[in-house]
Design a protein around this nucleic acid. Structure first.
Length: 422
DNA sequence: AAGCAGAGGTAAGGTCTC
DNA sequence: CCAAGAGACCTTACCTCT
C-alpha cells in the first residue's frame, strides 16, 4: 500500500502513514427531519417523493380541511395517495422503516405497500443544505483537507493534522464526531484507513454513530471476506458479471489473474478491479473541483406523446432550458455542449448533444440547440422523462476566446429544415 | 500515394454514486 | 404495473490533424 508521503531524507523520524478518513452522516435526510419533528422519533418515517404535493399532505386532513400545524398520517390511511406521491421514490428511510424492507430509491407506492404505517415527509432541501454546510464547516475547522462527496459524505486527510496519527486516527475521528454532534445534534460514522478506498469501506463497518479503523495489514481479515459489491464503483452490473464468473468476495477477486480480468472487463476496468481488490489506491483527497456539466430533468406525472402532447411537452422543455440557464448564470458558468436526454415509457434512454462554436449561458440558445437535438431522436413512442444538459463548462471570465457569453444571441430566422420541433 | 500512429474532439450509450 | 434527479466517468466509434 502506498502509505508513505514524501519525506525529507534528513528526517527519517518524520515518516508518516497516510491516514484518510471517510465520514458518512447517518440517515441524513431523515435525521434532519426528526430534529424538527422529535415526536416521530422511533417511528417508521420515509422521506422523499420529491413531488411538491407531499408538502400539502402534511398540512391537510383526508376530508380536505386544511391544517396549519403539520400532522402525520400513515401512508395507507391517505386517500388518493398516488396523487400525492406520484412516481416519486424514497430518499431516506428511518431505521424503523428499514425493518420493513423500505430503502433508498424504492418507489413510494411500493414502500406504502411494504410499510403501510410509514409517515411520509417531503424533502426539505434548504434545511438539508443548511445542515450539510454546518457539519462540513465543523470538520474543516478541525481538519482542513476535506473533499466533498455529496450532501452527506466527505473524505478527510488526517495525515498532517496534529494528532491525526494517534490510535490510527481514532482520536481525531472521535473529536470530529463529537464536534458534529454538539453543533448539529446529528450522528455520523467514520472510517479511517491508509487510503480513500479502504476508508470508505471502513465507515460502513460500525453504523450508525461508529468509528472503525482499518490498518494496512488487515486487508485479508477485514476486506477480503466482503462481497465485491462493497467496493465503491462495483455496482449491480459488474457485481452480476463477477458473480457469473464465480467471484463473490473481494478476496476471490484479488486471487484472479490481472490479465484474466483485463480480458473480461477491459484494460482500464480490469486493472482497476485488480488494484482495488488488493486495497491499493493512491488517489488524493481533492479539496476543490470544477463542475463538468449542469442539467435539469423531470419525470412527468403521466407519459406524454411528442405529437399528441406537443404543447405540454413544449412548456416543460422550455422550462427545463430556463432552469439550466438560471443555474449557469447563478453559479457563473458558460458551456458549449448542449444535450438532451429522454426516457421512453419502457425506460429506454436516448441522448443527443451538439457542440457549439462558442460558449453560451442563455436560455434561448440552449432552447434552440436542444430543440435541434430533439429532432434527431425517434419520437414515435411515449416519453416519461425529459432532460436538458449543458456541458464543456468554463467559468465566466475564464473563456478561451474572450467573453462571448455577454454578446446578445444572434437573431436569425430558422430555416424550415432546422426549425425545432418544439 | 499509401499506410500507420497518436492526440484530441465529438457523439451515443452505459454504469455508478448519493 | 412500478422504478427521481444530478452529476461524474467509462467505453466505443468515428473523425480530423499532424
Amino acid at each position: 500500500m502506498e502509505a508513505v508521503t514524501s519525506v525529507p531524507p534528513d528526517e527519517p523520524s518524520a515518516l508518516r502513514l497516510r491516514r484518510i478518513a471517510h465520514l458518512d452522516m447517518d440517515a441524513f435526510f431523515a435525521s434532519v427531519e426528526l430534529l424538527r419533528y422529535p415526536q416521530l422519533k422511533g417511528l417508521a418515517v420515509v422521506i422523499g417523493g420529491g413531488r411538491r404535493k407531499v408538502d400539502e399532505l402534511l398540512h391537510q386532513t383526508p376530508d380536505g380541511t386544511g391544517l396549519r400545524e403539520p400532522h402525520f398520517i400513515p401512508v395507507a390511511d391517505f386517500p388518493l395517495l398516488k396523487d400525492y406521491v406520484g412516481r416519486g421514490v424514497i430518499t431516506t428511510a428511518t431505521y424503523a422503516a428499514r425493518q420493513f424492507g423500505v430503502g433508498s430509491a424504492m418507489g413510494m407506492m411500493k414502500a406504502a405497500r411494504l410499510c403501510p404505517q410509514a409517515i411520509v415527509l417531503p424533502v426539505d432541501f434548504d434545511e438539508v443544505r443548511r445542515f450539510s454546510r454546518l457539519f462540513k464547516s465543523t470538520i474543516t475547522d478541525i481538519a482542513p483537507v476535506m473533499q466533498d462527496r455529496g450532501v452527506d459524505e466527505v473524505y478527510i486527510d488526517f495525515t498532517d493534522v496534529p494528532g491525526g496519527q494517534r490510535e490510527g486516527g481514532r482520536v481525531l475521528a472521535r473529536l470530529i464526531q463529537k464536534s458534529i454532534f454538539d453543533v448539529t445534534g446529528l450522528t455520523c460514522s467514520i472510517g479511517v484507513a491508509p487510503n480513500r478506498l479502504l476508508a470508505k469501506m471502513a465507515s460502513e463497518f460500525n453504523k450508525p454513530n461508529g468509528i472503525s479503523i482499518v490498518y494496512e495489514d488487515e486487508l485479508e481479515t477485514k476486506i477480503w471476506p466482503l462481497n465485491v459489491r462493497k467496493i465503491n464503483g462495483i455496482g449491480p452490473k459488474a457485481g452480476e458479471k463477477l458473480a457469473t464468473l464465480g467471484i463473490q468476495t473481494i478476496g476471490e477477486l484479488a486471487a484472479q489473474d490481472l490479465q484474466w480480468l483485463i480480458e473480461r472487463f477491459g484494460k482500464s476496468s480490469g486493472a482497476w478491479m485488480h488494484r482495488v481488490a488488493w486495497g491499493r489506491d493512491d488517489s488524493p483527497v481533492v479539496t476543490e473541483s470544477e463542475p463538468v456539466s449542469m442539467s435539469r430533468e423531470t419525470t412527468f406525472d403521466r407519459d406524454l406523446h411528442a405529437v399528441r402532447d406537443k404543447a405540454e411537452l413544449g412548456r416543460i422543455f422550455t422550462d427545463l432550458c430556463e432552469r439550466v440557464a438560471g443555474d449557469l448564470q447563478r453559479k457563473g458558468y458558460v458551456g458549449k455542449t448542449i444535450g438532451i436526454k429522454l426516457r421512453y415509457d419502457d425506460f429506454r434512454i436516448a441522448t443527443r448533444d451538439q457542440t457549439l462554436d462558442r460558449y453560451i449561458q442563455d436560455a434561448a440558445t440552449i432552447r434552440r440547440t436542444a430543440g435541434l437535438c430533439l429532432k434527431r431522436v425517434p419520437l414515435d413512442q411515449k416519453l416519461r422523462l425529459l432532460g436538458v444538459r449543458v456541458g464543456t463548462l468554463e467559468r465566466v471570465g475564464d473563456v478561451p476566446d474572450g467573453p462571448p457569453e455577454l454578446r446578445a444571441p444572434r437573431a436569425r430566422e430558422a430555416d424550415p429544415h432546422t426549425r425545432p420541433l418544439f
